[in-house]
Amino acid sequence: MNFLPFLLLFCSLAWGQTSVVFFNPGKSDESFWHDVDSFAGAVAEDLALDFRTFHAQRKYYSMIRHLEQMIAQQQLPDYLILVNEKQILPKMLRLLEGQNVYVLVALNDIDVQHQSMLEQPYWQQHLLSSLIPNNYWAGYQAARAMHLASGELAGEVAIISGDKLTPASIQREAGAKHFFQQQPQLELKRVVYADWNEQQGYQQTLMLLRRYPNLKYLWVANDEMAFGSIQASKELGRQAGKDLFIATFNTSERALNLREQGQISALAGGHFATVGWGLAMIKQHSLGEVLAKKVDAPLFMLLEPHSATFQLIKDKNWQQLDFSNLSFDFAHPFGFIQ
């Protein structure tokens, strides 16, 4: 007989709330990571989890230092949620080997060259699952929606990607490239990187539009960089949504407003809910359920103005939702809204 479910349930009842710490690699005031935090906080409250977040403020090695401190002071929680931003995850997992903690990986998975370390008996037991949005799908679909929004015009394309290391960035960019390569009437002129930053997005767009004055499409890997792109295009006399079509990602208020106004022609998002759904999986595990080692689901949607989902995400009033009674559908993260 498997006594693990009963042991987990007994521990939960005996020692109070299940504790979870999320290592957030971003800045607390960045729109995407703020959305991640607020949604996860609402889920944790409904599920009665003791949930805390450590913000790395995009200083990735501060995650290593903070984890070392938690281990040294014996302050590890029951569960950790980790993100493989800038390929930092293997280093964190090495520190955790042999510790009494479960790990769930969210948003960016461990890369192929480090997969073998997960075959160790310790990680077979303690690495619960990976909940990774399908960035390839999202990159492809955003590119396709942008092209459709233009009336499928022929033209030149440029990509402003995030960085060359983060798996989400690599896969999102690959999806976009695949779509553009399938379209004989589209010519991909250049791929550049702006490190998810508005000012760098602005500078890269100035360079691209000056070098390619006939550029018709600009695929941008996040909203912060897209804001810089829209500003640069205005300064050079281009009209976003009219003679320059822009696709991007995330659900900041500013991005949603620009999508409603038509300056952003295609917007994909919803993956900010990933950590919140990860908390739901942790709750299930704490009650004795066995989790899939990897969840294969989009966790992205194309966001269309005037839809109920669009308005829900714009309002961000997550406390109105009852997550405790939700049947989670990772393929449609907001499918419970009609």
Rank of each mutant, 00 (worst) to 15 (best):
I264A: 04
S161Q: 03
Q17R: 06
Q319Y: 07
A138Y: 06
L104Q: 04
I159Y: 08
E156N: 11
I160V: 12
G241T: 08
P213M: 07
E156I: 06
E198T: 11
G98W: 05
H147P: 03
V21T: 14
S12F: 05
L287N: 14
S252F: 00
K27T: 09
S324W: 14
T53A: 01
N222Q: 04
M63A: 06
G98P: 04
P167W: 03
R172D: 01
F310Y: 13
E173S: 08
M1R: 07
E187K: 15
W137V: 05
E260Q: 15
A40T: 11
E85I: 02
P298T: 12
L89A: 05
S19I: 04
K293F: 11
Q125D: 14
L206D: 02
D109Q: 13
L76N: 03
L8P: 01
K242V: 11
W15F: 15
E235T: 02
S169M: 01
N108L: 04
I64W: 04
I230D: 00
S62H: 05
L188D: 07
S130E: 15
L95R: 02
Q57W: 11
D329H: 05
F336N: 08
A176Q: 12
F323T: 02
V112H: 11
V275S: 05
E198S: 12
G276V: 08
T166L: 02
W123N: 03
E235F: 00
I110H: 06
Q181Y: 05
H271S: 09
D111L: 07
H271E: 12
N197V: 07
K27N: 12
F272C: 02
L4T: 12
L208V: 01
G16N: 05
A240S: 15
L96R: 00
T166S: 07
E235D: 03
Y60P: 00
W318Y: 14
F32C: 11
A44Q: 09
Q113A: 13
K216Q: 14
L303Q: 04
V275F: 04
V192W: 11
W15T: 07
Y122P: 02
L302F: 08
E173L: 12
M301Q: 15
G162K: 03
H66R: 10
A268D: 05
A226Q: 08
Q338D: 13
E304Q: 15
T251D: 08
H147V: 10
Q204T: 07
S130D: 06
R259E: 01
Q124G: 09
